[in-house]
């Protein structure tokens, strides 16, 4: 059941992407109604997918790669729907929807069946720790998309060469504001994700911190965002520099999530391909 629903939500995300693409090409302000409805219904069906899987599996479905990709895509879609509620940034919507779609497609080629829960993960900390971490990552994903478009638009304004994209982008200030807001929400979420992980580790493994690859990379990423937040608040790192940081930060986020899972075995390797 949840696998069928997963495919439906994947399809709806594809529809969302196409509809937003049409909006962007046409560039008529206020004509994004169907695209927004598609995004919200995709998110709703996806939420139902996760709920069904939760009921079928009996645990929060974030324990193998398929489940993690699905959950990550879900948080990104949700966070973006929130950000886009008032700002209506169709260009960002196309890119975010594409990102979600790619994650969902990856998720669909992973083994999708429900597995026995690894006893080590059978804890209330699982949804708290992983939920917070992914929510933070999703917020940073939106900052990443805003950062990419900030750089593109800044380049056009500096070089005075305007492509068709220029006429469809929100202002630099809006993109920078999205970056900043995402940072102020994403950073505490990430911090709480790491702390909750440490607390859980203490109760499960007997030590707060064991320097396994995921922990190390998460810490590096955390420092990166901490540096950006500090620079932004104290010495006015904004605009271009903030955008570059948001992009690099997200590359680290992705590596911490996927790269570490696939390449560097460690204590967090529950969620490799086989999901053992």
């Amino acid at each position: 059941m949840n696998i069928l629903l997963y495919k439906v939500s994947l399809l709806l995300y594809a529809v969302t992407t196409v509809l937003y693409l049409v909006c962007v090409i046409q560039n008529r302000p206020g004509r994004d109604r169907w695209a927004r409805i598609a995004l919200l219904s995709a998110f709703a069906v996806h939420s139902l997918t996760l709920l069904m899987r939760y009921l079928e599996a009996g645990y929060t479905p974030i324990t193998n790669l398929h489940e993690s990709l699905s959950f990550f895509a879900w948080t990104i879609a949700g966070v973006f729907a929130l950000v886009n509620w008032r700002l209506r940034m169709n260009v960002l919507a196309v890119s975010t929807a594409t990102l979600v779609l790619v994650l969902m497609l990856f998720g669909s080629v992973m083994p999708m069946h429900v597995q026995e829960l690894n006893p080590a993960l059978n804890s209330l900390w699982l949804p708290v720790h992983v939920g917070l971490a992914f929510l933070g990552n999703a917020v940073f994903a939106v900052a990443f998309v805003a950062g990419v478009f900030y750089l593109l638009e800044e380049r056009m304004l500096k070089s005075k060469k305007f492509s068709a994209l220029y006429y469809r982008l929100p202002s630099l200030d809006t993109l920078d504001m999205v970056n900043y807001r995402c940072l102020t929400f994403g950073f505490p979420l990430m911090t709480m994700g790491i702390i909750s992980g440490a607390v859980w580790a203490e109760s499960a493994w007997g030590t707060y911190w064991s320097w396994d690859p995921k922990e190390s990379w998460a810490l590096i990423t955390w420092f990166l965002y901490a540096a950006l937040l500090h620079g932004r608040l104290s010495i006015g790192w904004r605009g271009r520099r903030a955008a570059i940081f948001a992009i690099i930060g997200f590359v680290f986020v992705l590596f911490t999530f996927l790269g570490v899972n696939l390449l560097l075995p460690g204590l967090h390797s529950y969620s490799s391909m086989a999901g053992s």
Binding site: N27, R28, E153, L157, Y166, Y167, L169, P170, S171, L172, D173, T174, M177
Partner: peptide
């Protein structure tokens, strides 16, 4: 209303205002 035919400035001084909007938002 359905096309953007009058959407972008075609005078130099108004183009400056539009650029400012692209940079500052409002």
């Amino acid at each position: 209303t359905e096309t953007n035919i009058a959407g972008n400035a075609v005078s130099v001084s108004f183009a400056a205002v539009e650029l400012a909007r692209k940079i500052f938002g409002s």
